[in-house]
Design a protein around this nucleic acid. Sequence first.
DNA 1: AAAAGTGTCGAACGAACGTTCGGTAACCTG
DNA 2: CAGGTTACCGAACGTTCGTTCGACACTTTT
Lengths: 231, 231
Amino acid sequence: MEIRLPIVPYNGRKGRHAFQSGKAGEETDSPFDRRLAKLLHYAAHIFCEKGYEGASMRDLSRAAGMSLAGLYHYVDSKEDLLYLIQKHAFRTIIERLQERLKGAHGAENRVRIFIENHLDYFLANKEAMKVLTHEDETLKNGRGAEIRAIKRDYYKICLDLLEELRQEKGLEFSGRLAVLGLFGMINWIYTWHNPRIDLDAGELAGEMSNLFLRGVLNPGKPKRKSAKANA
Amino acid sequence: MEIRLPIVPYNGRKGRHAFQSGKAGEETDSPFDRRLAKLLHYAAHIFCEKGYEGASMRDLSRAAGMSLAGLYHYVDSKEDLLYLIQKHAFRTIIERLQERLKGAHGAENRVRIFIENHLDYFLANKEAMKVLTHEDETLKNGRGAEIRAIKRDYYKICLDLLEELRQEKGLEFSGRLAVLGLFGMINWIYTWHNPRIDLDAGELAGEMSNLFLRGVLNPGKPKRKSAKANA
DNA sequence: AAAAGTGTCGAACGAACGTTCGGTAACCTG
DNA sequence: CAGGTTACCGAACGTTCGTTCGACACTTTT
């Protein structure tokens, strides 16, 4: 269950600032880091609204109240912005998940924790999470490989939880299909969730967990007949 | 269950060519229409690969073996390309669904048909469907409104099917949540489906239907205790 | 007090973008 | 065969893009 951290960050200022190295939750105290964090926040907002390709560095400079050239003091490139946003979001989610999973017993309960953790962070950081989800094939080469590796780790955690569940309950289902079905349900939320009319993270996590777990747990095969038979 | 068709297509060549007016399945026989269909096919491929914003008309001209200026003989603008791709995909899906639903009885069976129809078209037209799914907020103004209207219709069909199911079986669940959970599962597929290792459309539809229907049908509330309780 | 480093900026660079213009063949129609 | 329409193209237009350069003030170090 240990997460493999990337060997070296794809960023020129290696290790000199807390935000860009070390754990996700580490204190980011230097003024440089605070300003960078703000920039990433604005950038997430803009990428979320216009998409990565559709957003321009000039948009960001306007939003941040900083000159275009000034941005490059904090980031190497536009790609770097996306990379930092995605890395931070992923690491935080995984870190919090591992914290919550510590000492939690029972496969079913652990799956519920996974879902609740995902949705908690998801709905509290909708913009960053839409960028994470929507632009997941955008990064190329090194930065892309690093993010994809973190994503695979996260997928693996979920897969392990589900196989734990399958063994504990003596069920039969495809782990891959179950994970991807579950991810579909919970990642799709950014396309429709409206905080004014929809449930909050905790309630939503409960409902989604019920829907998913009942689907996985119940061995019953309701009406086996093919859909084609009646068409 | 009748689908409201858009009043007027957002395209200069109104009604003069089969591809751009009339039903989705209508014969598209004129050479103009055949060439346009090919262009849309190439465009879907490029939009799928690089995203709408990231793709350029020059990419398309290269892929189609036609000059940059020549493209504008067939399409009004880059936006028009996206619009035509999305409209055609949506209309075809809905048209085929209504065909399959005709004379199909039993709410559960009808839901299975919905899922199978979606996945059949989805996996047979992955590129266009990724464009439909991924670029669903890209179109603005008139064209965007028209596509969003078709999408609402499709959503409504699914919602009606699920409420039919709920009544027939005397269940209690949120239709909105169920529809959106289901859409999440089946639309997410484009992010992971690999024809070499994953099930084909029919099998996948069966598995997804089982997963979803068991989740919806089984009234049991497995382990009600909150996820937080054990964290 | 000099030197080095940090934060910020206006201006510009070359490249790429969507789109348009004027023209040229080929084809259909009368 | 004349005249218009259709299919297509090279070249360009004006704009926007990501990024860089050289400079200026301010702070910290020597």
